[in-house]
Amino acid sequence: METRVKKTGLTHKLLMFVLMIYLLIPLLATFLYAFAKEWQTTVLPERWTVGWFSEMFQDIRFLDALWTSLYLCSISVALSLVIMLPAVFIITVYLPKWESFMKGIVVLPYAVPGVVAAVGLIRAYSSGPIEIAGTAYILIGAYFIVILPYMYQGIRNSLLTVSAVELLGSAELLGATRIKAFVSVILPNIWPGVMTSTLLSFSVLFGEFVLTNMLVGGHIQTIQVYLYQRVGESGHLASAIAISYFIFILVLSMILMKLGKRMNRGIEG
């Protein structure tokens, strides 16, 4: 019995290993390419350099683009969190009849391709009462819509997983006001789930290119727009940017995950 359990474990591990290799090989190649000076006829590069990285970091536009991406994505995700958290909570708990309607609404961003959405948005907002085409506002608005499915599903699933309706009922019967009940028993329990959707949304936005380029490409350079522009110049430089971008996202994910865990523990202890 024991050996069989072990065997299955081994198969699983092997499968995971193969999958990891499959996923990591392109990354590894990019990584090598970013450090390669000459790489023509050999398996591994003949000579190495950190020149691409130094060139990149000396480029003020790279740091600008990184910063622009960071704050645009943060603002959009924060805005979404502030609006969606209470909205989804109210719909799930008090207006369950709206659920099926909302479910349909939130998958619409999937249904509309980025190009179509961008053209539509530019047409709608380049004239008339709200003239914000080409500005950060239209981008933040579009970003809000892009992450709607992730935020809605994430928050809703968290609420259902913890049986929020019953928790709330219990808390209210024990004498808590609705707001107090939300803060003391709902929020702490859905927080890990909410954190995960926030992180996911952030990553999605950080990597978003089509919509960004079409909406504000000429005016605002996000990291993706910058990357796109540099790809044509030098493959090595683009690799260096991609690797930096990957490491940045990795570090960010780890920080957010740690943060989520600590918050969770803080509430429990």
């Binding site: 219990s170 028993v185 702490p188």
Partner: peptide, 12 residues
């Protein structure tokens, strides 16, 4: 006071 079928204890 009410006791629910699913207990509804506060997990946190």
């Amino acid at each position: 006071g009410m006791v629910f079928q699913s207990y509804a204890l506060f997990p946190n």
